[in-house]
Amino acid sequence: MQKTILLSLLNLAFVGSASAQALIDNSPQAIAQFAQGFGTAQLVTTGAQPSIQGDVYNAKYRLTFYDCDAQQGCQYMVFSTRYPATSLNLEGINHWNQHMLYGRLFRKDNQLVLTMPVRTLGQVNALNLKTDFEIWASTVEQLEEMYLSRP
């Protein structure tokens, strides 16, 4: 009986880990489809680099893809979002960059920009990509709660 229960648990663990380790094509189209599981996600292909605009757990983002080709997919993607530059002074920006592991803040074009790069060489697995979206949402939430008035 114990052996049967143990084997059943091991089987469940294997099945769960297999689905979590499922590989996803690192093309903008495949990642946009994956992102729709977390909120809105619209693929935009009109600029120099393809991007996705959407929200994940109510955190707005743009996910821009870099170094893309038809055979290899995209090598990098960068999450970003923008706020009015008056939202945070330079001292606050420096404090964030010194103390926060994820997300870099800077000012550009009279706006405050939060970015987080992710490397996507080859294919990505579903669990890692899900974690990247969750880290992004958490980073945005921390920035808004700690430094900005939430809109």
Rank of each mutant, 00 (worst) to 15 (best):
Q36S: 09
Y102A: 12
A13K: 04
R104E: 09
L63C: 02
L9F: 11
I135F: 09
V118I: 14
E144A: 07
L9P: 00
F65K: 04
A59Y: 07
A22N: 04
A126I: 01
E141Y: 12
Q29W: 04
S17Q: 14
A20E: 12
T86N: 02
G16K: 06
S27I: 10
Q21P: 02
F14I: 14
T64H: 01
Y57P: 01
I31G: 02
Q36G: 13
Y76E: 11
V113P: 08
N97Q: 04
T40M: 09
A22M: 10
D69R: 06
N89Q: 07
Y57R: 12
S149M: 07
L23T: 11
A41D: 01
P28G: 06
R107T: 14
N58P: 00
M100I: 03
T131E: 13
Q42W: 00
Q29T: 11
I93G: 01
V56N: 06
C68Y: 04
P84N: 05
V15P: 03
L105V: 01
L101N: 08
M116S: 05
N125G: 05
Y61L: 03
T115R: 08
F38H: 08
Q29N: 11
L9N: 09
N94P: 04
L148V: 03
N125M: 07
S27E: 05
L7D: 10
P50T: 00
K108Q: 15
E144G: 04
P84W: 05
A70F: 08
S8C: 11
D25T: 13
A85M: 04
L129M: 15
T46Q: 13
A13W: 03
A32R: 06
C68L: 05
V113M: 06
Y147G: 04
N94K: 12
Q49M: 01
D25E: 15
R107Y: 13
Q53C: 00
Q111S: 10
G122S: 08
F38V: 02
Q2C: 02
L148E: 02
S51E: 11
A32F: 03
I135L: 13
T45N: 11
A59V: 06
N11G: 14
N89C: 00
I24N: 08
S87C: 01
Q33V: 09
N94D: 12
S138E: 13
Y57F: 14
Q142I: 07
L121Q: 14
Q42V: 13
Q123K: 15
L127C: 01
I135R: 12
Y57V: 00
A48N: 07
V78M: 11
G92N: 05
L129K: 03
L7C: 05
Q21V: 00
Q36K: 15
F65C: 04
L88V: 02
A20Y: 09
L63W: 07
A48S: 09
A126E: 05
D109L: 01
S51W: 02
E91V: 14
L112W: 07
L143E: 09
F38P: 02
A20T: 09
G47S: 13
W136L: 08
P50L: 02
F34A: 07
S87L: 03
P151H: 08
S51I: 00
R150P: 00
L143A: 06
T81P: 05
G47D: 14
Q142M: 11
A35Q: 01
A20N: 10
S19Y: 14
P84A: 06
S27R: 11
C74M: 07
T45I: 11
Q33E: 14
E141K: 15
M146R: 15
K60N: 09
S87R: 03
R150W: 08
I24K: 06
V44N: 12
T86Y: 09
S51R: 08
